[in-house]
Design a protein around this nucleic acid. Structure first.
Length: 348
DNA sequence: TACGCGTGGTC
DNA sequence: TGACCAAGCGT
C-alpha cells in the first residue's frame, strides 16, 4: 500500500469514528494542546481528564501559569505522577512568556529545546493546534506500525527500531490534514489497535495489515524483579498539624512535601536527639504499603506528639500541615495515604 | 544509551 | 493477582 493510501484510510476513519469531544479538543490552542500532551505522557486518557479540567480552570492562561508558585502547580498535579513534568511545565511557561511573548514557536527545533517537550509532544503541538505537517510517534502509532509492517522488535538495537518507526511515520504523515491524521492514528491505536484483543475486524487497515496473532509469541519472559523497600517516617504532630519537609536532592518525588524520611529507627533516634525532642508520647501506628512499578514500598511510621511547635533549623523548606485545612503543596500518593490515615485516627 | 520516573487500569 | 501497559522525556 502506498503511504498516501494509508493516511487517507486513517483520515476517513477519523471522520467517522475519531474522538472529537475530549476536554482538550474544545479549544485547540497551543496552550491547551501542550498541557494535555504533557499530562497524557505515559498516562491514560481517563486518568488525565479530571486533572486537565482542574488544571485549566485554575491556570486558564499560560501567563497565569508562569506567574504561579511551583507548589500551587504541584498541588494540582498531586496524584498524577511523574512530577518532573509539572516542574518542566512551569519552566517552559516562563520561557514562553519571557522569550516568545506568550505563544509557542512554530519551529520544531525551538520547541524541542523547551523543558519537557520532545519530538512527539512538539509534533502534537504543531499538528494538533496549528495543523502543520509533523509526525507523532507515541505508543499508539508505534503499535499500529509494528503490527501493520510486522516489524520484529529487536531488543538489541532498540535505537535502530525507533529510527525505522520515525522514518515510516514521517513518510506516511500527509502534508494536508496532518491534524486529523495524527488524531486518527492515536484514536485507532487506543480504540481499535489496542494492546490486548485488537479489533482487527473493524480496522480500516485490515486489508493490508501484516499483523499475525501468535507469531510464536516470543514474549521474552523477563520476570521483573520487584524490589522491596522500607521507609521509616517520623510523624511529628502538634494539635491538628503535622510536620512535613520539602524533598530535596531525591530521585523520586522531588519538591513534593513529605515526613522526615529515614532508613532505620536508629537514624530517627539520632534525629530526635539532635533536635532535642524527647522520645516519649510516641504512638504505635500500623505500617502502610504502596506499590510502585518496580518497588514494593513498606512505610513504617513513628509518631510523636509535641506540645510546642518547634523550628527544626536544619531544613528551611518545611511546613506545618493542617490536617483539617490542607495547604496548597505537592503531596505524593503514599504520603496522601498516610495523611488520610492520620486524620482518621486523630478523629477516633 | 538504557534506565528511572508514579499512578491507576486491566486481565 | 501480579504483570504489564498508558498521548515520553531527561540524563
Amino acid at each position: 500500500m502506498k503511504y498516501w493510501q494509508f493516511s487517507q484510510l486513517i483520515i476517513n476513519w477519523y471522520h467517522m469514528y475519531g474522538r472529537k469531544n475530549l476536554p482538550w479538543q474544545i479549544k485547540k490552542t497551543d496552550y491547551h494542546i501542550w498541557i494535555s500532551e504533557i499530562m497524557l505522557q505515559q498516562t491514560q486518557v481517563k486518568t488525565v481528564i479530571p486533572y486537565y479540567k482542574k488544571f485549566i480552570s485554575t491556570f486558564n492562561t499560560i501567563d497565569k501559569l508562569a506567574q504561579t508558585n511551583l507548589d500551587e502547580i504541584l498541588h494540582i498535579w498531586s496524584g498524577l505522577g511523574y512530577y518532573k513534568r509539572a516542574i518542566n511545565l512551569h519552566k517552559t511557561a516562563k520561557i514562553i512568556i519571557n522569550k516568545y511573548h506568550g505563544y509557542f514557536p512554530n519551529s520544531i527545533i525551538d520547541l524541542i529545546k523547551l523543558p519537557g517537550i520532545g519530538k512527539t509532544t512538539a509534533g502534537a503541538i504543531l499538528s494538533l493546534s496549528k495543523n502543520f505537517s509533523f509526525p507523532i510517534l507515541d505508543g499508539n502509532v508505534k503499535r499500529i506500525l509494528t503490527r501493520f509492517y510486522n516489524l520484529p522488535k529487536n531488543f538489541n538495537k532498540l535505537k535502530h527500531y525507533e529510527n525505522k518507526l520515525w522514518h515510516l511515520i514521517n513518510m506516511i504523515t500527509p502534508i494536508h490534514n496532518a491534524n486529523k491524521f495524527n488524531q486518527g492514528m492515536m484514536d485507532l491505536g487506543s480504540l481499535i489497535c489496542q494492546y490486548k484483543k485488537p479489533k482487527c475486524h473493524i480496522c480500516p487497515l485490515n486489508q493490508n495489515c501484516q499483523y499475525i496473532k501468535n507469531f510464536n509469541n516470543q514474549k521474552t519472559n523477563i520476570t521483573k524483579i520487584i524490589k522491596k523497600k522500607i521507609f521509616f517516617y517520623l510523624i511529628i504532630q502538634y494539635k491538628n498539624f503535622v510536620y512535613l519537609e520539602r524533598r530535596k536532592n531525591k530521585k523520586i518525588w522531588e519538591n513534593l512535601f513529605c515526613f522526615p524520611e529515614f532508613n532505620n529507627i536508629k537514624d530517627i533516634n539520632t534525629w530526635l536527639i539532635q533536635n532535642e525532642i524527647k522520645n516519649k508520647n510516641n504512638e504505635k501506628i500500623n505500617s502502610i504499603y504502596h506499590q510502585l512499578s518496580h518497588i514494593k514500598l513498606k512505610m513504617k511510621m513513628f509518631k510523636i506528639i509535641i506540645k510546642n511547635k518547634k523550628i527544626f533549623s536544619k531544613n528551611n523548606h518545611y511546613i506545618w500541615y493542617n490536617l483539617y485545612n490542607p495547604p496548597h503543596i505537592g503531596i505524593s500518593q503514599p504520603i496522601k495515604k498516610i495523611l488520610i490515615y492520620l486524620k482518621k485516627i486523630d478523629q477516633d
